[in-house]
Every structure is written in structure tokens, then in C-alpha cells.
Design a protein around this nucleic acid. Sequence first.
DNA 1: ATGTCC
Length: 471
Amino acid sequence: MEIVEDGPFRYRIPQHGPMRVPGVVFASRYVLPEAAGDQALQQVVNVATLPGIVEASYAMPDVHWGYGFPIGGVAATDVGASGVISPGGVGFDISCGVRLLAAGCDRQELAPRLQALMDVLGHRTPRGPGRGAVWHVGRSQLDHILEDGARYAVECGHGVQRDLNRCEDEGRLAGALAAQVSTRAIDRGLCQVGSLGSGNHFLEVQAVEAVYDPDAARAMGLHEGQVTVMIHCGSRGLGHQICTDHVRTMDQAMSRYGISVSDRQLACVPVESPEGRAYLGAMAAASNYARANRQLLAEAAGDAFEAVCGCGLDLVYDISHNTAKTEIHRVDGNPLRLCVHRKGATRALPPGHPDLPHDLATVGQPVLIPGTMGTASYVLVGVAGGGAFHSTCHGAGRVRSRHAAAREVDGRQLRADLERHGIAVRGTTLRGLAEEAPLAYKDIDAVVQASEGAGLCRKVARLVPLGVVKG
DNA sequence: ATGTCC
């Protein structure tokens, strides 16, 4: 495959064959080979063939192989030109995302209480595959969650209005259609509201190690030495089931719209079709479920801090990195209504954007980047002129399969190494720990450097782990 | 990511 270096941190895959647009990969020379090592770049090419795609099939520096679309992929389709929506461009974990909370204490104050805090957090945070939840709800309450997301959780007393001001979409994605969520998806969702899940999901207690942009950090409520909590999780079995259901529907419906794709995992239909509207309605419902999920976990973490440390947690921001959104963007000078797929990619709105909370209007939108377990995480911010429809990376990006990582890493040794570095671990299985070993991921510092170098975002702060509750 | 296959 031909790849042309177009500029610093920017590579292009020229349009060829059935591609409707070129591929554009944001990466450094250091990060690119890792992306090219698997099928991810072929997936960038495959996405470029989808009906209605505009500008380019984009890949962020953390790109890696995924279901149909690469993880770390961004693709926008022109809704008015029969542009398509594809569940594979959102991912199985619909609205998977990150919430960052700022604690009212610094790391020195926390140090003598860290183990006790981790014990309480470990005890109160449902995790692992299957059942277990902070909030036990019935069918009618679940319908409200699907409709109103974190807003409903706050209405029920699980948080305060300020939380919603610091959530993407104010904690509620409009357009949810509970009727498009199958009974099986509902059943899976009932017993998981307020739970981490497994895999790379986690709750981490961190400290702000470095501040690169003091003004932005101050506006976000962050300073050097401060303790933070990062929660990374999604829509659990409910979102997974919705993806499964609608991929099947679209796979069967595609040919009626004259669409054929090279990979069945790219199943898609026009945004403006009954099947497209059904998926987007169900996807919005799962998004709201994920946002309520993070709201409930944050409330439980705040209770743990109050009990052990005598201080609370304030929300910095909550943002998803697996979504499809209808947005207006200029393409070749013309404003178009686009369906922007971000799969393992984070929206990064620039200063002055109308969707920002008013107290962050001049700062830009916080972008929350979870690193690999035991390494750093980042707070970034959107910048003016950001490419890929104002998108950036979402994390380190996997470079080794779970299987390979588990084969190469001894979970017991890894846990001992983390503890030796002062990181308290409240984990799940040792195998689960081994699968998330740092060697299975790209270097988060290199990914963030490439994202910033490509002009997609700017660094605000670097966070280091003090303790981790593993999903 | 996921009651890691209905």
C-alpha cells in the first residue's frame, strides 16, 4: 500500500480503486509502523469506499485493528447525499468514554490514606464481566435512563446540576428511541447500571504530575499535585447487544439500497432510511445508558472520598470516544450536514464553539486520554483549525492481542511491579491484569505528541496513577 | 468491548 508523508505527523494513502476519498493517517514515524503492522491501514482504505464519505478516511495516532472500521478512525458521510451510518464505525461499546473528577486534596494529603481509599473504592465499584451494579433499576426507570442519560440520574438525586454542565451534551444525547432497543438488550442492561465492565475499563486514582497550560488547567479545576479520579467505561452488555442487533439488520437491508461493501463488518445503510434512523435512535439510547453509568460510578467514588478523605470530587468533564453524531461542517467551503463516526476517537471542540460549557468557552473542550495501566494519562484541549472534523486520539492503542499479552506477561509479576512503583492495585483476575500490560499498548506519550504535532489538540496536563481498580 | 457462540 502506498503511503505518502504529507507533512509533519501527517501521512496520506492516495485514492485508488473503489476509494471515494484518500486516507489520512495522523502519526509520527515512531507510531506509524505500529499502526501499519496489522490490518488497521487496510481498514482505513476500506472505510474510504463507503457511500457518501467526504474529505478523507481519517486515522488518529492510536489507530489499530477493529471490527470493520479501525479503532482510532474518523469518517464523516454527507447525510444529504445518501451518506451512510455504520455500527462498525461506532464500535460495540457504544459511547464508551472517560470521566475525570478533581479531588479536594493533594497527593501528599492522600498518601497516608491511599490504601484505605483503594479498599473502599475496590469494594464499592462493581466490575468484571456479567452482573453487579451500583443502581438497581426496573424497566420503567431504565426507559428514563435510555431517554435522559445522566440527566435522569441527577434528577433522581445521583449528582448535582453542575455535573451536567460538565458533560458532553449535558449528559443527555437527544433522539433516543427506546422502542429500537431489543428486549434482550434491555434485559442485559437492567442489572449493570453503575458498573465498570472488564477489558481496558478501569477506575484510577491519579495525581496531576505536570501542567502544560496553566490557564486551561485552572479553568478545568486542575493544579499540580492534585488528586484526580479517572473512570473509563461504556454501555456494557446493552450497547453490545444493540450493535449486534443492528449490524444484523443492516447486513440484510444493505442490498435494497444498492450498497455492497468489501467487508461484511462494514454493514451500513443511508442515515436517512428506516434502518438508519432505528440504529441512531438505539445508539442514542445506549449513549445515554453509558453516561448514566459513569454518573453513578462517579457518585460512588465521591462517597468513598468523603468517607475516607473528608473531601469530595468535582467533575472536570465527561466525554465519549465511540459515537456517531450529526454535525455541520464546511466541506470545500460549503456547510454540510454530516454523520461523523468517531470510533476510538475523541471530539475536540475549539475555543468559542457554541456547544462548550460557558466557563470553558474561551478554553476549548477538555479531551480525556486514558493511558495504559501503570503509565500516564493526559488532559488535552481542542484547538482552532483542528482537523478530522475536530477529532483527536482516545488512548494509547493496542499493539498486541489479549492472547499474546497474556502469553508474554505474568500477571502476578505485573501486579508486584505496579505495587513496587507505589501503585495500589484492586484488580480482577491475574489474566485480566496481564492482558492490559503496558507492552500490549503504544507509548501514550508518543501518541499524544503526535496528536498535538498534527494540530489536532494541545496538552493541558499529565496525570500519573496512584491506584487502579481494574475492570 | 462482550453472559469472549444462539
